[in-house]
Design a protein around this nucleic acid. Structure first.
Length: 562
RNA sequence: AACCUGGUGGUGUAAUUGGUAACACAUCUGGUUUUGGUCCAGACAUUUCAGGUUCAAGUCCUGGCCGGGUUGCCA
C-alpha cells in the first residue's frame, strides 16, 4: 500500500509561497469548461488539479461554465459535465457560476475601455481584419477605424447591443498594439455580434464577449487567486493581465499554465472525438472505447484510477505522452483488491467427464477473493458436462503449455483434477468435444498424495450456466500515436470491439450494476447498461496481465527460427 | 523567419536549491502461487550537445541543436 502522498509541483509550490508570504489568506481556483461537449480524460487532469489543490490547501474551487458562445453551447452538455465531475468525486458546493452571469458587468467594462480610449468599434470584415493583422514576421496594419472618436465607438457599441446590426457587421476591439510580436495583442476582438439565443440569458443579448474578455474578469469577480490552465493559453496571459490592469476589477488573479495530458492510443480533441461519433466509428459519446469520462465510466474505469493517474503523471510544463498502460496498471491495482472473483468462459468448448456419475451435480466451494477471507465464498455447481476455454486445450501443445492436452492432468479450479483421455473434431479439424476422467480423491483441487498439478483452469458447469454477451475492447487506434501518418481515422483499430457469446456461472445472472467483477484468468468486467434480465451484457474493463501470451509468442518465434 | 516556451532511462515524474541520479509504468531474469493473476527478488540513464566557473554541475554561465505553441468575430 502506498502512503497518502501529497503531490508537490510548481503550482503547489507557488501556492505554498503565496500562503506563507501572506499574499493570500486562502486560495480560490476554478474549473472553467465550455458547455459544448463532453468531458474527457484530459479534462480530468485539470479537474484533479483545480479541485485537488483547493482541497489540499483548505480553499475552494468554483465550477464556472465559460458560456460565451451560444452558437455552440447547450444545457445538455452543462448537465453532463456536472455529472462527470461529481462522479470523479469533486464538489463545488454553492459555487456554481457562469460567465453569462457577468454579461452586464462585462458590457460595462467594455464601455469603460471605450471611454478610456482602449477600445473601438471596427467595421472591417473578418477577412480584412485577418489580412491587416499581419503575420509571424510582419506587423499588423492599423484599422481605418482605430482612431475614430470614442463617442462614435460608444454610440456604435450601444447600437450593436440594441440589435441594429447583423452578425459580423461590426466588432469591438481592444486598442493595444498592431505591431506586437504576440499576435493575441494585435487589437483582439472582445465583443462580436451574434443573434443567437443563449441557454441561460435567452434573447437578452445579441452581442457576446470573447473568451479573452470574459475569462480573466470572471476570475477577478470571483476573486480567483490562481487561475490554472493549459499551455495553449500561455500567449494569452499578457492579454489576461492587460484587461485586469486597464479595468477597475476587484482583484488581480494570476494565470498559471501547465501541460495537458496526452495518453498513448488516445485522442483528446473535442473536434476529433466528435468526428468519431458523427462518423459512426463508435457508438456514441459514451461508447466504452471513448476517452470521455462517460465512456470510461461505462467501460468500468473507476474514478479512483483516473485520479491516481492524474496524481502519477504530475503537473509540469513539459509536454509528453503518458503510456496508456499506466492507467491500466493503476486500474488493475485497485480492482485486484476490490473486485470479487467469478468464473466465465468466453470461447467455449465442451468437456465430457467420462467417469462422472450420470446426471449428478455437485456443489464446490469457490473463494470470492483469493487473499481476503472476509469476502467469503460461494457454492458453484460442477458436473459431467462442462465448458472450458478453447484456448485452454491443445491437441499438440508447445513446450511449457501447462493446460489441457491429451494425456495431461490439470486442476479445474476449486473442483477436481481432470485428465484428458481424448477429443472429437469436426470436418475442419476443429475440436468439438474433449473427453476427460476425474480423480474422485482430488475434490477441492488437491490430493493427499500431494502430487503436483501445474495447470489450473477455470470452467463453467454447462447445464446450469447462464448465457451472456461479452464485449471485449482494445485500443481504438492501432498506433500509440493516433496521428501517425497524418490521419487518425486511418489508424482506427478494426478490432477495438469484439463481441462474444459466453457462458457464465449462475451467480453472475443477478450481478449488480456498477459492481466490478474479475472473471478468473480473463480480466475485470462490469455490467453494461444494455444488459437486461433477459439478456446479460458485460464489458471487459481491462484484461489481466497475460505473461503466457508473451511466452507463447516467444516460443513460436523461437521454433520458427529453427 | 518573430514572440513565448520546453529538453533527466523506452514512458511519466523526482533530486534537501552546487554534494555525486530516486520513484512508478513498460521491458527482461528468477522465485512463490488452486488465476501463466497477485506477491517477492533482481536487471536496465554518465541528465540534448559543446565549452566555461568550481574541490564538486542535472542544478550556475556562454553558445549551439532539437521539440511544442501562437497569424478565429472558438475556448
Amino acid at each position: 500500500m502506498c502512503p497518502p502522498e501529497t503531490p508537490t509541483d510548481f503550482i503547489r509550490t507557488i501556492i505554498q509561497e503565496d500562503l506563507a508570504s501572506g499574499k493570500h489568506q486562502s486560495i480560490v481556483t476554478r474549473f472553467p469548461p465550455e458547455p459544448n461537449g463532453f468531458l474527457h480524460v484530459g479534462h480530468a487532469k485539470a479537474i484533479c488539479l483545480d479541485f485537488g489543490v483547493a482541497e489540499e490547501f483548505g480553499g475552494r474551487c468554483h465550477l464556472r461554465f465559460d458560456d460565451t458562445n451560444p452558437s455552440k453551447e447547450e444545457q445538455l452538455y452543462a448537465d453532463a459535465i456536472q455529472e462527470d465531475i461529481r462522479w470523479l468525486g469533486f464538489d463545488w458546493g454553492e459555487h456554481l457560476y457562469h460567465a453569462s452571469d457577468y454579461f452586464e458587468q462585462l458590457f460595462e467594462w467594455a464601455c469603460h475601455l471605450i471611454r478610456e480610449g482602449h477600445a473601438y468599434v471596427d467595421e472591417q470584415t473578418a477577412e480584412e481584419m485577418r489580412a491587416n493583422r499581419g503575420d509571424l514576421n510582419h506587423p499588423g496594419v492599423d484599422s481605418p477605424y482605430r482612431n475614430r472618436p470614442r463617442e462614435e465607438s460608444m454610440d456604435l457599441f450601444l447600437r450593436m447591443r440594441a440589435g441594429e446590426f447583423e452578425d459580423g457587421a461590426k466588432v469591438l476591439r481592444a486598442r493595444i498594439d498592431m505591431a506586437s510580436p504576440n499576435l493575441t495583442m494585435r487589437d483582439p476582438a472582445i465583443y462580436r455580434i451574434q443573434h443567437s439565443p443563449h441557454p441561460r440569458t435567452g434573447d437578452q443579448w445579441c452581442i457576446y464577449p470573447m473568451y479573452d474578455f470574459a475569462h480573466g474578469q470572471s476570475d477577478a469577480i470571483e476573486k480567483i487567486t490562481h487561475s490554472l490552465c493549459t499551455l495553449e493559453f500561455e500567449n494569452h496571459r499578457p492579454l489576461y493581465d492587460w484587461f485586469l490592469e486597464h479595468l477597475p476589477v476587484p482583484a488581480k488573479p494570476r494565470q498559471y499554465e501547465f501541460s495537458r495530458l496526452n495518453l498513448s492510443y488516445t485522442i483528446t480533441s473535442k473536434r476529433k472525438l466528435k468526428m468519431l461519433v458523427d462518423g459512426g466509428h463508435v457508438n456514441g459519446w459514451d461508447d466504452p472505447r471513448m476517452p470521455t469520462l462517460c465512456g470510461m465510466r461505462r467501460r468500468g474505469f473507476t474514478p479512483q484510477s483516473i485520479r491516481a493517474l492524474c496524481r502519477e503523471v504530475g503537473v509540469t510544463r513539459t509536454e509528453g505522452t503518458v503510456d496508456f498502460a499506466l492507467l491500466q496498471s493503476l486500474l488493475r491495482e485497485e480492482l485486484n483488491e476490490t473486485a470479487e472473483r467469478r468464473m466465465a468462459v468466453l470461447n467455449p468448448v465442451k468437456v465430457i467427464v467420462e467417469n462422472w456419475p450420470q446426471g449428478k451435480v455437485e456443489m464446490v466451494t469457490a473463494k470470492n477473493h483469493p487473499s481476503d477471507p472476509l469476502r467469503g465464498s460461494r457454492e458453484v455447481p460442477f458436473g459431467g458436462e462442462l465448458w472450458i476455454e478453447r484456448d485452454d486445450f491443445r491437441i499438440e501443445a508447445p513446450r511449457k503449455f501447462f493446460r489441457l492436452k491429451p494425456g495431461a492432468e490439470v486442476r479445474f479450479k476449486y473442483a477436481y483434477y481432470l485428465t484428458c483421455t481424448g477429443y472429437e473434431t469436426d470436418a475442419d479439424g476443429e475440436v468439438t468435444e474433449i473427453r476427460c476422467t476425474y480423480d474422485p480423491e482430488s475434490k477441492g483441487g488437491n490430493t493427499e498424495d500431494g502430487r503436483k498439478v501445474k495447470g489450473t483452469i477455470h470452467w463453467v458447469h454447462a447445464p446450469s450456466a447462464a448465457a451472456a454477451e461479452m464485449r471485449l475492447y482494445d485500443h481504438l487506434f492501432r498506433e500509440p500515436n493516433p496521428e501517425e501518418g497524418g490521419d487518425f481515422l486511418q489508424n482506427l483499430n478494426p478490432d477495438s470491439l469484439k463481441v462474444v457469446s459466453a457462458w457464465v456461472e449462475p451467480d453472475l445472472a443477478q450481478w449488480p450494476a456498477k459492481k466490478a467483477v474479475q472473471m478468473e484468468r480473463l480480466g475485470y468486467f462490469c455490467l453494461d447498461p444494455d444488459s437486461s434480465g433477459e439478456h446479460l451484457v458485460f464489458n471487459r474493463t481491462v484484461a489481466l496481465r497475460d505473461s503466457w501470451a508473451k511466452l507463447e509468442k516467444k516460443i513460436q518465434q523461437g521454433s520458427a527460427g529453427t
